[in-house]
């Protein structure tokens, strides 16, 4: 935990963020700031807007209202050089999104070369170092389709790291993985957190959030319902909606029929 001391500069500052898709308002006024070196996990039911929140930070979704600052730069300013900002924000997707026509090494070098204009030798050196970091140094010559889901996601993390990001966004990075492959990806993320990387993580992995997060944010219905230290949010949630969500997620076999509005079977059969 090298860089855990609270920096004066916020990595992300979000205020009054709104986002609508047509008539559907997905984000209804989000205020959130993430300090340098912080690991913030965003949890919440599907459709709560947590992925949209993440995608607004690097403008994959254009906000309808509010402001977002990343490293002091207002990305919601129409004159902002968004390509320049994105260079400093690493993003990891649920579906990995590795470039299928390129080998693993080229997946890591192409944007170093084309965007950062690094020399071939330097890009390859940095690629090798980052593959080493995620434990896949021997897969540099493979194509993505030849790798398991867990390996693909680790390559995706290495690809983002190769750009030397100040900040990493994770959009449900383990949701598309077979259960036995989740651990290897979480291990890489845990290592990143320990190295002091600033991370904003949308996840359903409650154990990971509880262990690694410096702060947990619970979202529902397009707003932040509560946020706090993991021990507090998981151990003694202040809001009823948080408690209900955690009950459903942590003890799925004990969710009763009345909680989901199901009627007893006898009333339906004539």
């Amino acid at each position: 935990m090298k860089h855990r001391e609270v920096s004066a500069l916020s990595a992300i500052e979000i205020s009054g963020l709104r986002k609508s898709f047509g008539a559907l308002e997905v984000l209804r006024g989000i205020d959130l700031s993430v300090d340098s070196g912080e690991v913030v996990c965003v949890i919440g039911p599907s459709g709560s807007g947590k992925s949209t929140l993440l995608r607004c930070v690097n403008l994959l979704e254009v906000p309808t209202g509010g402001t977002i600052r990343v490293g002091g730069v207002e990305v919601t300013d129409p004159d902002c050089d968004i390509d320049g900002v994105r260079r400093r924000i690493g993003m990891v997707f649920q579906q990995f999104n590795l470039f299928g026509h390129l080998r693993v090494r080229e997946n890591l070098t192409i944007s170093q070369r084309r965007v950062l204009r690094r020399s071939r030798a330097e890009a390859q050196r940095i690629a090798a170092a980052n593959l080493e970091r995620v434990g896949l140094a021997d897969k540099a010559d493979a194509y993505p389709a030849q790798l398991s889901g867990g390996q693909q996601q680790r390559v995706a993390i290495a690809r983002a790291l190769a750009m030397d990001p100040q900040l990493m966004l994770f959009d449900e990075p383990t949701s598309a993985l077979d259960p036995e492959l989740v651990g290897e990806v979480l291990a890489v993320m845990r290592g990143l957190a320990a190295d002091g990387m600033t991370m904003l993580v949308v996840t359903h992995e409650m154990a990971f959030a509880r262990e690694v997060a410096s702060r947990v944010v619970f979202m529902d219905g397009g707003v932040i319902v509560e946020s706090g230290e993991p021990a507090q949010v998981f151990g003694a949630p202040r809001e009823r909606r948080t408690a209900e969500f955690l009950h459903r997620v942590l003890e799925p076999t004990r969710v009763s029929e009345s909680e989901i509005g199901a009627q007893p079977r006898a009333q339906h059969d004539g």
């Binding site: 994959l60 390509d83 924000i89 997707f93 590795l98 084309r114 965007v115 690809r159 983002a160 750009m163």
Partner: peptide
Amino acid sequence: GQTEAARSLGMSHGRAMVSIVLPQ
């Protein structure tokens, strides 16, 4: 997702088209 990954790595729209989308 291919375009999104390329753009999130800082590639411009045109660069993402030429290097990532068109080859595939």
